[in-house]
Design a protein around this nucleic acid. Sequence first.
DNA 1: CACTAAAACGGAGGTGCCTCCGTTTATTTA
DNA 2: TAAATAAACGGAGGCACCTCCGTTTTAGTG
Lengths: 203, 203
Amino acid sequence: MPKQEMTAEATRDAPAQKRLRADARRNRDKLVEVAAQMFASDGVDASLEEIARRAGVGIGTLYRHFPTREHLVEVVYRREVEGLCHAAEELARDHPADAALELWMQRFVDYIATKRGLATSLRLLLTTNSTLFSDTSGRVSGAMRSLVQAAAAAGKIRADVDASDVMHALGGIYSAPNTPDWRERSGRLVKLLMDGLRFGARG
Amino acid sequence: MPKQEMTAEATRDAPAQKRLRADARRNRDKLVEVAAQMFASDGVDASLEEIARRAGVGIGTLYRHFPTREHLVEVVYRREVEGLCHAAEELARDHPADAALELWMQRFVDYIATKRGLATSLRLLLTTNSTLFSDTSGRVSGAMRSLVQAAAAAGKIRADVDASDVMHALGGIYSAPNTPDWRERSGRLVKLLMDGLRFGARG
DNA sequence: CACTAAAACGGAGGTGCCTCCGTTTATTTA
DNA sequence: TAAATAAACGGAGGCACCTCCGTTTTAGTG
């Protein structure tokens, strides 16, 4: 279980967001941070009052910022997707292109792992709120695309596949049954996939 | 809003159901009946305590019979589908084949009407519990099939369509936006469909 | 019938949800 | 800097959820 380890300032949604007062901002960020932990450990049904408590604010404050549980879940979810995509850029900077891709996919597996328990509620949220779905899936596949293209351009992986193929291959992770060894199996899947991608590369 | 008007004894699931004690049986039936009304009027989030109260039992009794809200919703849902299918047989007995089909489709519209508000929760339930989905959709399309076949056999409607086509045509009802005139529009759709079906019939 | 085991009843109680509103704090204006 | 105003804070209160368990009822047996 990898810590997400993200600083609070990640929550900078620039648009049309009326300038928040300093304290409000602080509290909001803290709430999101705590909620992310609680959702990860206890599922989306984690107690909102407990979240408020741990964030050191009253329950009223939580509700002012996030009128429903779904709002909070959505913000946390977006933040995590954001983190995942940001990691892609970072990995691309710090590693050879093929290693970056592999590391990112492993991280993707980690990410999915934390989401497995939440499947049904998340599915509801994603079918209800279709912009959320298109926004985030767009973000994620965008991140993947640039990693794949970079690796292909550097000759580290074969050039005759594109990102959506890889994404599709990774799809098996979702649908795989939730066995205890799911994690390992998914890890192997990623390695296997990388071998396939490296095979026949120019470099 | 048509009353469903079903007697309690409709809940006779013969299989493997350990013989219930008389009082338990009574209470259970009453609970389902009241729940059906409450879900229809207040949505699936109707208060369980209120349901128990109106059924004249304690909350504990409700929970013993239906350990979760979903259990109760599922039973009510199945019962309603059952009623819908039963109506098909009845209509087939009491009316000419084409009229039976038309009346049943109108009733189907009524039925969907009561479910419109519940769309998201029901969808979750139906995707989560896939046997529920296949059971009920099988039942419903079975009912429709026999009505269509009977009408075709009697020469009251054209013989070159099958039940799944009609079902598909009715599908528009689901997806139509929830405008105030939805009900009328759906009624007209059914009439239109029937005209189409009658056109070119032998009889 | 009376007795008894098994099963059902039902409500008290602990917890969480969410609203409402009086209090406190930050920002703006003079 | 002080006063005024706007905004955020936070907890009390009311309601619903669900569990637990002592009490009551039923169905079977001598």
